[in-house]
Design a protein around this nucleic acid. Structure first.
Lengths: 151, 151
DNA sequence: CCGAATTTGTTACATCGGTAACAATTGAAT
DNA sequence: ATTCAATTGTTACCGATGTAACAAATTCGG
């Protein structure tokens, strides 16, 4: 192997991006075709569906979305009447976001589709391989956190 | 665990995207700070650096970039005098793209930085974890290919 | 050969996304 | 209390990106 060349096929950032791109593109068809959702809107829906009421800032931190993305997705889902804003008891800058009935219905319809999508991919892999990707991603998540803490 | 809820933290597309995003954002500082390159431009440079002469279509297929991204990156690197276009012997639609001396110099400067970046992440992980992420990604790459072949 | 279909690469258009500026509010310092 | 800093969320602006339309060239079917 040549030290002057970088093998992109073995280069971690490149592999991650390629995979995330391909998986995301396939998966987006589910929420795009059925509901016309964008990716930030799906993420907002999935986060509120899982956690119930949250503030915009908390959603951004938890789902790794920029606050402008969150803000725009909130506006979009609010216009669909899929979520409602409620004032914070003491801090008037903050709004609590909660899914409406219609939002919950959409969430409940999408969750099994998301599960099936993931299953379809994983069942192409052998058990040891599934274990490798699942624990490997966990290890990488930890490594990235440590990385960030050092700087 | 609740069957009605989707745990985003364990959901493969979400984890992949979060990681790819974080890794890419960190890594982009290397080529952005040093050379003001965009991600498509870095990918073009890295692909031509590794493989020598290629056509735009081949680059797009190999590096999973949309042809408009390739086209724009080619224009950008050409204006920097980092690559040159040469006509194809028999097909006048096609152009062969090759790095110039200046392009190769930049590539040679970036390769070790890319290697160090990857090493810094991987050395936060134990050997077994490194093996897990590397073989897990390979298995997932295969699974995605099989997936695509079935449709 | 000849016209239709395909391929290669560029460009116009619309959309998306991040940076930065901003208003409103709250917290901290003194 | 009063001023300054920090936080929350929105918006204007600009750059990036994909879709679709396109021109030029080639290939294919008959």
């Amino acid at each position: 192997m040549n030290d002057d060349l970088l093998s992109l096929e073995e280069f971690l950032p490149y592999r991650l991006n390629r995979l995330a791109d391909a998986v995301s593109r396939d998966f987006s068809r589910l929420y795009r075709d059925r509901f016309g959702l964008t990716r930030p809107e799906w993420r907002l829906l999935a986060t509120l569906g899982q956690y119930g009421t949250m503030t915009a800032t908390a959603i951004g931190q938890h789902s790794a979305m920029h606050k402008t993305k969150v803000s725009r997705a909130v506006t979009a889902l609010e216009e669909r009447r899929w979520l409602r804003r409620a004032p914070h008891a003491t801090d008037r800058r903050v709004e609590h976001l909660t899914l409406t009935k219609a939002g919950e219905d959409a969430y409940r319809e999408l969750v099994p589709l998301a599960r099936e999508f993931e299953t379809r991919i994983l069942e192409q892999m052998r058990p040891a391989e599934k274990g490798a990707i699942i624990s490997g991603l966990a290890a990488l998540e930890r490594a990235m956190l440590q990385q960030r803490d050092q700087d």
